[in-house]
Design a protein around this nucleic acid. Structure first.
Lengths: 163, 163
DNA sequence: GGATTTTCGCTAGGTAATCTAGTTACGTTG
DNA sequence: CAACGTAACTAGATTACCTAGCGAAAATCC
């Protein structure tokens, strides 16, 4: 999990320059968003009775089929940055819980492909559709100009954080 | 952890309305940011050889001292939403690794207060200061109007995600 | 002011998800 | 075809969490 973190501490970190308080407000809004999102993920995990990686894996397999790609255990290992051993037990779990199935790879007899079951598709949609719809609504309510500003901001932040 | 997730899938989800593609772009930017941030946290964890909760705990203890508050084990348990038992072992870990120390509470003889060691302070700064500075720079480069748009957007998204 | 209840941190024992190391089966390449 | 590389699996250890329950101290209630 993750969590709240005590708030309203700002005053002590950047008390020197009044100018930069506005910038700090932006970062705090970003943190509030992250906290809200983390909480949503925790709720989803609880609701579906799965771990974070399990949910990401199922989603990836579902998306794979939607886009006509076949997802292999190896793909999941890379996606989640876990070992091949952990991937095996993860797939065991998801197969036992009825979310995905193992099928032979059409050409490579060493390999597998993973297919989502119908119920997995339904479960994931049920768990995520509401929040996604609300988020889309917010995004749609922006003007074209505002969208540009927001996207540019987020991408620059991604760069700042990922350097 | 968390991770990339295959991209450019949009076309299949919302192929009906060209109007909403722009909104989807916004959500994708948001996801790119989340992925970047998650990766940064993973790097930090690796660099400091600690788990996520350990880092959050140390940061909270450091902040506590900076703001003149005494942090107790109970505070950490609430912050991280873990049991009191897990909190005890978490503090054991952080004490053994030399990041924090247990001290008697000045008035309540059942209780403890936690103090960061000097090295903890330095380590955390070293690990987080760079990215934080870059993020602040991005936030500062916005105009006042842009900041307003971004903060409003983030807060509305927090609402959408947290409902 | 003594008895009861609550709070605080700890110990004991257990579980889930990961890891490393090593195996088998199959593909690829010199 | 021989050697090496790759895909997935098994076994066993480790880590970080959990629940249950304890002793000591504080708060509350006649």
């Amino acid at each position: 999990m993750d969590a709240p973190e005590g708030d309203s501490v700002t005053h002590f970190w950047y008390s020197g320059e009044p100018e930069s308080q506005a910038a700090v407000d932006v970062l705090q809004a970003l943190r509030r968003y992250r906290v809200a999102e983390t909480r949503m993920r925790a709720r989803t995990r609880q609701q579906m009775r799965m771990g974070e990686n399990d949910i990401l894996a199922v989603r990836h397999v579902i998306r794979g089929r939607q886009t006509g790609r076949f997802i292999s255990p190896k793909d999941l290992a890379e996606l989640l940055d876990i070992s091949s051993a952990s991937t095996t037990t993860l797939i065991d779990r998801l197969e036992k819980s009825g979310h995905i199935e193992r099928r032979p790879h059409p050409t490579d007899r060493r390999a597998l492909i993973l297919m989502p079951t119908d119920s997995a598709d339904g479960d994931v949609r049920a768990a995520l559709a509401d929040a996604h719809a609300r988020m889309l609504e917010v995004a749609e309510s922006l003007t074209a100009e505002e969208r540009g500003i927001v996207v540019a901001f987020l991408d620059r932040m991604s760069g700042a954080v990922g350097a």
